[in-house]
Design a protein around this nucleic acid. Structure first.
Length: 122
DNA sequence: ACCTTGACGGTTC
DNA sequence: GGAACCGCCAAGG
């Protein structure tokens, strides 16, 4: 049977949106919230990312590591396990991380409007 | 039904 | 820069 009923209402939209972030780019929590049709709910984005099943979602992995805060920083305590994991995943994509910070000017995802209309199913 | 918790963000100083 | 303050609201206890 389908497990979609078990997923919290907004998580689908958030995870779906996060999957659109291309390799080598990052997006802010608030940016994802806006694109997902949930303006002002950046915190919900963070919360939902922590709820992604280990097995992935709808058969795909969600690139949670590409989501950082509006200051361009990784939102985990410096040098904590999650921090280090995220930093490594980002660097694997050639994203420059210095002191937990990333230059949004260089690496922030700038989605194309038409692309969004074509990709988002809600 | 009430209270607390957040992988946040904008404003202000 | 950065720190303090407040607004936000779904979830979970």
């Amino acid at each position: 049977m389908s497990n979609t009923k078990l997923i919290k209402p907004h998580y689908d939209q958030i995870w779906q949106t996060v999957q659109l972030i291309p390799t080598g780019k990052v997006a802010c929590y608030g940016q994802i919230a806006d694109l997902a049709g949930l303006p002002g709910r950046a915190r919900l984005v963070g919360k939902s990312l922590g709820q992604i099943p280990n097995s992935g979602w709808q058969g795909k992995l969600v690139p949670w590591h590409r989501v950082i805060n509006s200051q361009g920083k990784i939102s985990f305590p410096i040098n904590s396990p999650f921090f280090l994991t995220q930093k490594e995943l980002l660097q694997d994509e050639d994203i420059v991380v210095i002191g937990g910070k990333i230059k949004l000017k260089d690496f922030q995802w700038q989605p194309d409007f038409n692309e969004l209309l074509f990709s988002l199913k809600f």
